[in-house]
């Protein structure tokens, strides 16, 4: 069998975190308008970190751009978002089953300090893999929700210096 020199079913990108990665074309997620602040990146792939509940959303247009994401229901079971009809229409989402919601995480050196941006989730059409970052207008969410508030509270109560 001869190898195809240009494999169009794969998108290759040189990343700063993972070296060269190859994304199957049918796994590429198109985010309309990109992520706020990064309009030039529109093509992404979900890149697993081992079998963690956290994954990377890696840009295929800018190798240095990747953000940790997760399924908000795993950490915020009451998380409920309302998306405007015209925003859903732009993704051609017609039922809730077609919609995948992810939230972006901000990590810090102390993992107990990591936060999720519940104000600006990413919504994706599960089959078409077209999505966008939306800004929730009248929702009681902020850009920084601790994933482990109890853990952080405990640590803050611990004495910083042992006498």
């Amino acid at each position: 069998m001869t190898e195809n020199p240009v494999d169009e079913s794969v998108v290759a990108v040189e990343t700063t975190r993972f070296g060269r990665i190859e994304a199957p074309a049918n796994k590429v997620i198109h985010l309309l308008g990109g992520l706020l602040g990064y309009p030039k990146s529109q093509r992404f792939i979900l890149w697993n970190h081992e079998d963690s509940k956290l994954r990377w959303l890696q840009s295929l247009d800018e190798g240095s751009l990747a953000m940790p994401v997760t399924d908000p229901k795993l950490f915020f079971p009451d998380y409920h978002i309302k998306i405007k009809r015209d925003e859903l229409a732009a993704l051609r989402v017609t039922s809730a089953e077609e919609l995948v919601v992810m939230v972006i995480l901000s990590l810090r050196d102390d993992p107990a300090e990591m936060t999720a941006n519940l104000k600006g989730p990413i919504i994706i059409h599960a089959l078409r893999l077209i999505g966008r970052q939306v800004v929730l207008k009248d929702a009681p969410y902020s850009t920084r929700h601790l994933l482990f508030p109890e853990l952080r509270a405990t640590r803050l109560r611990e004495p910083q210096v042992e006498l």
């Binding site: 963690s52 509940k53 995480l105 990590l107 993992p111």
Partner: peptide
Amino acid sequence: QMQAAAELVGS
């Protein structure tokens, strides 16, 4: 940071 976060969060 991802490694440390993943350890806390679990698989």
